[in-house]
Structure formats: structure tokens, C-alpha cells
Design a protein around this nucleic acid. Structure first.
Length: 285
DNA sequence: ATGCCCTTCAATGAAGGA
């Protein structure tokens, strides 16, 4: 079974590319977690995804933010936002679903963390405070010791210096600052494992490149992650970044590439056309 | 060996992204 996290930077602008890509892969994605929809729910092209066998849970917002989870596994329950009408849900950035059965199912959290602007700005403070909310939200999930839970999305933090192409040049710029990295670690300390670092120790793979020539020079950052509880890690087989949709010239790509987790989905009766290869392609030069 | 910012909106440039 495969769970994908993809910041699409507008679902309406990216629909063609997204459908091309899913087809190109042989329709092997079972759970598709999308970020930065940039549209209200009514603007989401739900028919196209239903035609591919996905059930869509939407949490959209006009012009900014917005997340969705499209699943081929049965959705048992859904929760959108941090909940209880909090001020923190004015920006729609987080949702979760329970998939499969209640006993042998999995929880998938889909998140789009704030960018943060510049250090010391209002947006920067918002980002750090938002991470506090995120931490308590995830603590609840992590404290359920039997919870097979994945947390995927755009965290807007490059965890290590090796997660950026030029650590010296990017020192103390957004996504690399000590306070942000500390905030990221508090999430991990709730009881999660960074699946990429676990499966590929000592290595990094970027998930975002600025628009322009950066993708052709592999000058990017790792800011998208998949985290797992111990139970989730136990069924995790591999993780990779698929560069195909990022390197496509037409239609215009997102600035992110999709991150794909492969798990042992037999207990969930996942009916996918899984292939052995997750599909990681490095730039040719 | 090249590519050299994109999307949104009571829009026609500005704001937000990373």
C-alpha cells in the first residue's frame, strides 16, 4: 500500500499534471494527501478523483492553504482542523482520517505548516505558535500506544543542514532557523520517527525546489516529511520522492515533489497495483 | 546544454509562498 504526500500549489492549476502522474505510475497510490489546494471545497475537482476510485475528504480554503485526503481504503472517520472552533482553524492546514477497520486500521494526518516569512516577523511568530498547537494535536495521537498513525505533509522546516543544498548560504533563513528546527524536534519527541531518515540513514532527499533552474541543479530543501508511530513504522517498507511531476515542463509543475511511503497493507486489504519500485529519480546531471 | 517564479483575486499589481 502506498501513501503519498504532495503539496500541489493549487489543485486547480495542477489537476492535469496530477492525473498524468497518477496514470504514469499505474495508479498505484492508495492514499493521496494534498496540501495547498488554494480553493474552497466546491472548487476541488472531485469527479476526476472519484473516477479513479478515490473517496475525497476536503478541507479547502479560498486562495490560500487547504488540505485534502483522497483514499481508496474505506474512511472510518474524519476530523478537520485542530477542532473546537479554535482561532487556529482560520487557516485550514490540518486534517486526519481513520482508514480501514477500527481495530486494524491506520490513522493518517495530513498537514500544511505555515511558511513563516522572515525571522521575527508576525508570520514567523505565528509559525512557532502554530507548531505548539500541532504538538498538542499530535500528542493525543502519540499517547494512544496502539495507534498505527502516519503524519505526512509540508512541515516547512529543513530538519538538518544536510536537508538544504547550501547550508552556509541558507543559514538563518526561513526553514533552517534554530527555533523552527527545535519546534520540529518537539514533534518528533511526541513519539514519531522521521521515516526518510530511518529508511535512509545519513542521507537526504529534497522535496522542494524554487521555481526556475533549481530542479535541474538539485538545489532544493527537504521540507516535506512522513512521520510514523512505532506501530506505523513496523509496517513501513520504504519511502521515496518521485521527481517525475517536478521535472515535467508542461503542464507547469508544483514547486514540491510527491513523497511516497510504502507500507505492508495486507492487513488493510489494500487493493493496489503495487510495484516494488517507489520511483526515485535523481537529476541526470 | 538548456531550463532561469508561480497562483490567486470584487485583480490589471500586490500578496503569499519557501
Amino acid at each position: 500500500m502506498k501513501i503519498c504526500s504532495f503539496n500541489v500549489n493549487s489543485i486547480r492549476a495542477r489537476l492535469g499534471l496530477l492525473l498524468d502522474w497518477l496514470s504514469h505510475r499505474g495508479d498505484d497510490i492508495d492514499v493521496l494527501c494534498l496540501q495547498e489546494l488554494k480553493t474552497v471545497d466546491e472548487g476541488f475537482p472531485i469527479n476526476e478523483f472519484q473516477a479513479l476510485g478515490y473517496h475525497c475528504e476536503l478541507y479547502g480554503q479560498k486562495a490560500f492553504n487547504g488540505v485534502a485526503i483522497c483514499s481508496r481504503l474505506p474512511v472510518v472517520s474524519v476530523s478537520k482542523g485542530f477542532g473546537s472552533d479554535t482561532e487556529w482553524d482560520k487557516q485550514r492546514r490540518i486534517m486526519q482520517v481513520r482508514l480501514g477497520g477500527s481495530a486494524d486500521g491506520i490513522t493518517v494526518v495530513n498537514v500544511y505548516a505555515p511558511h513563516g516569512g522572515e525571522r521575527g516577523s508576525e508570520k514567523y511568530n505565528y509559525k512557532l505558535q502554530w507548531y505548539e498547537q500541532f504538538k498538542s494535536y499530535l500528542s493525543t495521537i502519540a499517547h494512544d500506544t496502539n495507534n498505527t498513525a502516519f503524519v505526512v505533509g509540508d512541515f516547512n522546516v529543513a530538519r538538518y543542514d544536510s536537508d538544504v543544498y547550501d547550508p552556509a548560504a541558507l543559514k538563518d533563513t526561513i526553514a533552517t532557523m534554530p527555533e523552527e528546527r527545535r519546534a520540529f524536534e518537539t514533534i518528533i519527541e511526541c513519539g514519531f520517527t522521521d521515516i526518510y531518515s530511518h529508511c535512509h540513514p545519513g542521507k537526504s532527499h529534497y522535496t522542494w525546489w524554487a521555481y526556475g533552474a533549481a530542479i535541474w541543479k538539485d538545489q532544493g530543501m527537504r521540507i516535506d516529511y512522513a512521520l510514523a508511530t512505532a506501530q506505523a513504522l513496523a509496517i513501513t517498507k520504504d519511502i521515496g520522492v518521485d521527481l517525475w511531476p517536478r521535472r515535467k515542463k508542461t503542464p507547469t509543475p508544483s514547486d514540491h515533489a510527491p513523497l511516497i511511503v510504502e507500507t505492508d497493507g495486507s492487513r488493510l486489504n489494500a487493493n493496489s497495483h503495487s510495484k516494488d519500485l517507489i520511483g526515485s529519480f535523481m537529476p541526470s546531471s
